[in-house]
Nucleic acid binder design. Structure first.
Lengths: 165, 165
DNA sequence: CCCGTGACTGCATAAGTATGCAGGATTGAC
DNA sequence: GTCAATCCTGCATACTTATGCAGTCACGGG
């Protein structure tokens, strides 16, 4: 084998490089993909911006704005739209007994003790229609942003109940 | 006044436009600034991509990756680095009595009942060094990712205690 | 009224990111 | 070994975003 042992290269390097990237964005401030390329070179990963672009997508990194510009950040499970919706579907199907709206207020009846779980799933879904929720023991109060929003929300929640799994 | 009442234009339009942008990114899928420009035009905000770029920075929008590409998302308080660090500083200064490390484990003694608050603040800070935390009533257990990480973490937490207000 | 100031924006373009394509490496079947 | 299929990557470039500069407008002071 003639591979240069000081360079982390080839298909096998990808998982290691991904770990390095996560560590870099968690540990320091990475503003551009070129920053990342430079840091990776220092760690013996001889890659280009194109590869880093693909890595970033595969890792699901976030780009956030701060007052000095924007930077990359490690992914946050709470922002994964699909995962979050799945959680809401499960919560509704398994623990919700009834949903009713009175004007702007949605009253969601759940199994005893399950209200916080359902409320959390609703919060996590960040529906445009929802201003906020309050969870008791077996009831979640959902405050809609407007009457049309309340109507849309009811439809949306009902459609979740009706989907097949 | 000769202003065209059907166009939302001029300095006064900015706050309204910002609200519209937030609503758009919460309500639908916005993948590029040009998408946003198009939607804003439909809502009578005759702006260009340059202005939208500035708006996005001012609003602190996030860019997240999903399997179809990337999209914009409304800001999430939990990701605001400064706010999160401030919360940690407050939590440590007000409720923490002692910090000690045993190998990879940090033992943080807090006032009675305050451990969950302190643990939450630590989680929120997403330190690279921290694998996770467990909060009881008056103690938070912090699991570091490695021994060097544990040492760095101890320094970091101590430096928070010592900062001035 | 005239001027200075500050906020806001568009234009043009620089800066940064994503991707079609092709080549090299690896794996597994035969 | 040979071949096909797959994965990974770089190159070049298309696409997307950020920004220096200059112009417009509203406001307040003189």
């Amino acid at each position: 084998m003639s591979a240069n042992a000081t360079r982390l290269v080839g298909p096998a390097a990808k998982p290691a490089r991904h770990r390095a990237i996560l560590s870099l964005v968690r540990g320091g401030i990475i503003r551009t993909q070129e920053d990342l390329v430079a840091e990776l070179h220092r760690r013996r990963f001889p890659v280009t911006q194109a590869t880093v672009s693909r890595d970033i997508r595969e890792l699901g990194l976030l780009r956030v704005h701060d007052d000095a510009g924007s930077r990359y950040m490690a992914p946050v499970a709470e922002l994964d739209v699909e995962q979050t919706m799945q959680r809401l579907r499960n919560a509704i199907r398994e623990h919700v007994q009834a949903i009713e709206f009175v004007d702007l207020l949605g009253i969601v009846h759940t199994a005893p003790g399950c209200a916080p779980l359902v409320g959390g799933a609703l919060d996590g879904s960040r529906f445009e229609e929802v201003a906020g929720t309050i969870a008791g023991d077996d009831t979640v109060l959902v405050i809609a942003r407007s009457r049309p929003a309340a109507q849309r929300l009811l439809l949306r929640l009902n459609s979740i109940t009706e989907e097949e799994g």
